[in-house]
């Protein structure tokens, strides 16, 4: 008899169900088995109607985010061995996103937010490629390095109660990406991106719960990015106020 583990999987089939429900499976245990392996085992051997996203199985493509026992996790980087003490492992679709089906979340809101913050290098004057690389020392790179590690998996959005309350909040991933460019010594677009940080849907929806940074599988620390953004937005607010008092236009 091989040892098995009970995996309870959330199901939601939009064509049949009005609300999600839970289905139990017994999966043969092994030391190396990830939650993703377990889901694939279920799909291949037990119930082919289970739908979940996955691809790289090495925690870099960002496809396979799910809630494992109520915590946002990459299923490929989470192992059954870490849940052996518990009676069962429960796998659900990511919190705070609409559920397309089973474990597949609708992350389009998050992607829209990413696109909003102008996440590309902005230069006042574009240098021709023939002029060579823009210089950047390792120290300068270090200033934005962590914020450039985001794999867009959406775990931070599932962890963020403010995004859960109001999906218009640009959220941890998008704001960290804005800061990734703002802090890049080659970029000159911080002033343009300021409008997104300044908004109520920008950094000011954040109450520094900090759970986004705890669940981030790539140590991006989006909470730090947002709260440094608050300082920047704060200064921007004061400068703008001074300009208005001096009779200049609202920037």
């Amino acid at each position: 008899m091989t040892e098995t583990v009970t995996v309870r999987v959330q199901r939601y089939r939009p064509e049949e169900d009005t609300a999600p429900w839970e289905q139990s499976f017994e999966v043969p245990y092994s030391e190396d088995l990830s939650i993703l392996d377990a889901l694939n085992q279920i799909k291949d051997q037990q119930d082919p109607t289970l739908s979940h996203r996955w691809s790289c199985r090495m925690a870099i493509c960002g496809s396979c985010g799910v809630m494992v026992n109520n915590e946002p996790k990459l299923s490929c980087k989470t192992f059954l061995r870490d849940y052996r003490e518990q009676a069962a492992v429960t796998v659900r679709a990511l919190d705070n996103f609409p559920i397309e089906r089973d474990l597949v979340s609708d992350i389009s809101g998050f992607i829209d937010h990413l696109e909003t913050v102008q996440p590309w290098l902005i230069r006042s004057e574009e240098q021709p490629v023939s002029a060579g690389a823009y210089p950047q020392t390792p120290e300068q790179m270090q200033r934005y390095a962590a914020f450039s590690q985001c794999i867009n998996c959406g775990l931070c959005y599932a962890a963020c109660p403010q995004f859960g309350r109001d999906p218009a909040f640009l959220g941890p991933g998008a704001l960290a990406l804005a800061q990734r460019y703002n802090l890049d010594s080659r970029d000159e677009g911080a002033a343009q991106r300021m409008q997104w940080l300044n908004a109520g849907e920008g950094v000011w929806s954040c109450t520094f719960v900090g759970y986004c940074s705890e669940v981030c599988p790539k140590d991006v620390d989006p909470a730090a990015a947002i709260n440094r953004g608050k300082v920047a937005s704060d200064i921007n607010y004061a400068v703008n106020l001074l300009n208005i008092l001096r009779g200049k236009d609202d920037a």
Partner: peptide, 22 residues
């Protein structure tokens, strides 16, 4: 090389030497 440089101009964080060159 031209394409790698273009990626650099678009923001790709290529690892650098201490003097800031590629």
């Amino acid at each position: 090389t031209e394409e790698n440089l273009r990626l650099e101009h678009w923001g790709c964080p290529w690892s650098r030497k201490p003097d800031g060159s590629i």
